Simulated assay, not measured.
Amino acid sequence: MSAFLRSRLLWPVVILIGLVALNVAFTDHFLRIQVKDGHLYGSLIDILRFGTPLILVSLGMTLVIATKGIDLSVGSIVAIAGALACVQISDLDDQNSVSGVLIAVGITLVLSLALGAWNGFLVAGVGIQPIIATLILMVSGRGLAQLIADGQIITINSSPYKLIGGGYWLTLPFSIFIVVALVALTAFLTRRLALGMFIEAVGGNAEASRLSGIRSRGVLIVVYTFCALCAGIAGLMISSNVSSADSNYAGLWIELDAILAVVIGGTSLAGGRFSISGTILGALIIQTLTTTIYSIGVPPETTLLFKALVVTIVCLLQSPAFRKRVARKRPRPPVTQTPVPVSDREPVTNR
């Protein structure tokens, strides 16, 4: 218990509980979970369901930031993945064909991996700063998504594809199982194998890690490729949930929410150590905050300001320097000594 109180996860947990309590106060039956048509429904289930794409993008962003990098292209990759999958499915004679949907999903994920490898090549191979290298794909990628969709909103009607982001399995949204599987795989690769240590070493000091025998370029390429894969799966979830692909707005600004989730979770932008559990908490805070904004009736024109205010408070509460400054005790007044009367002083003897 004492270890948790000193952990960086303390304040994210406190903030998440506070947001849930605020929703309980303003929304009737917020905590109620009921079964309809064999599926679980409720506000908490909706937060998990709509938060799964952000959790995935934040998961990939965590490893990138741990290497002292950044990936601004994840929003564009989300749009590309959704557009490519929906275009391929719309061209099928039978949109409910499982094999056709699997082929479309497979091609989309392969393209996502290629885009991530391209980012990694620019960063590790060419030596371009991560923010510039990924900004290139951020700008051009959304244009590529519009080219794939021919500037149209692609609408499909495919039950197998709908399962990815809008379907249910064992009474729970199927997207939750995808996230759990990917988080478990990531935790295994980074905490049970040496990959996590390599990532932290590259983020702490890339040159020193290279001199110690770690192939830092390979680690960077793997990390950016994995981040793009997570964004591609998130794009499939988003387009699947609404059975359409909008290249202009799909994944718009999700990269900023992902960076906020990672920082709220306790991972430093300076690289080095990272926290997967903290990132999940941060993503849930962002999604719960979005739900809170709608439930308490915040005016739409002030939504972003309210969101920025809450995120700022969370980051300040997490800052050790800020907490020390607030909790710093006032200096005590100097203690004045009362002079001892001459009669009470001990006689001075000459030796």
Score class of each variant (00 low, 15 high):
Gly51Asn: 07
Leu193Cys: 02
Asn157Ser: 12
Phe4Asp: 06
Ile45His: 07
Leu31Ile: 03
Pro334Leu: 12
Val311Thr: 14
Leu102Pro: 04
Ile131Cys: 13
Ala133Asn: 13
Leu252Phe: 06
Ala83His: 01
Ile176Lys: 00
Ser97Pro: 07
Phe26Thr: 14
Val219Ser: 05
Gly165Ala: 10
Arg191Asp: 01
Leu115Phe: 10
Phe188Ser: 00
Ala81Arg: 02
Asp46Glu: 15
Ala85Arg: 01
Phe198Asp: 06
Gly272Ser: 10
Ala245Asn: 08
Tyr161Ile: 09
Gly38Ile: 11
Asn157Phe: 09
Leu92Pro: 08
Arg345Val: 09
Ala270Leu: 15
Gln152Cys: 00
Leu189Tyr: 13
Leu122Thr: 12
Ile33Gly: 00
Ile280Gly: 03
Leu135Trp: 08
Ala79Glu: 06
Val101His: 01
Ser275Met: 09
Cys230Leu: 06
Met237His: 08
Pro341Ile: 07
Arg210Trp: 00
Arg8Ser: 13
Ser295Asp: 13
Ala187Glu: 06
Val105Met: 09
Thr302Tyr: 15
Gln95Ala: 08
Lys324Ile: 11
Leu54Arg: 03
Val74Leu: 02
Gly82Arg: 03
Arg210Gln: 01
Ile55Arg: 02
Glu301Gly: 15
Asp28Met: 04
Gly278Ala: 07
Arg210Leu: 00
Ala21Leu: 15
Leu172Val: 11
Ile286Met: 14
Ile154Thr: 09
Thr338Glu: 10
Thr338Phe: 12
Gln88Asn: 14
Leu189Gln: 03
Arg191His: 09
Tyr168Asn: 05
Gly60Arg: 03
Thr27Gly: 06
Ser43Phe: 15
Leu269Lys: 11
Gly251Phe: 01
Arg328Asn: 14
Lys162Arg: 13
Val310Cys: 10
Ser319Ile: 11
Ala149Leu: 02
Ile148Met: 01
Val348Pro: 00
Pro320Met: 08
Thr225Ser: 12
Leu56Thr: 08
Ile264Tyr: 08
Leu111Pro: 08
Ser240Trp: 06
Ile164Gln: 04
Leu92Asp: 13
Ile313Lys: 10
Leu316Phe: 14
Leu113Cys: 11
Thr171Tyr: 13
Asn241Glu: 15
Leu22Phe: 05
Ile89Trp: 03
Leu189His: 02
Val139Tyr: 11
Ile238Trp: 06
Gly167Pro: 04
Gly251Gln: 03
Tyr161Pro: 07
Val180Tyr: 05
Ala261Ile: 10
Ile128Ala: 14
Gly120Ile: 10
Leu256Val: 15
Val335Pro: 01
Leu113Lys: 02
Gly82Ile: 06
His39Lys: 09
Thr62Arg: 11
Gly213Glu: 05
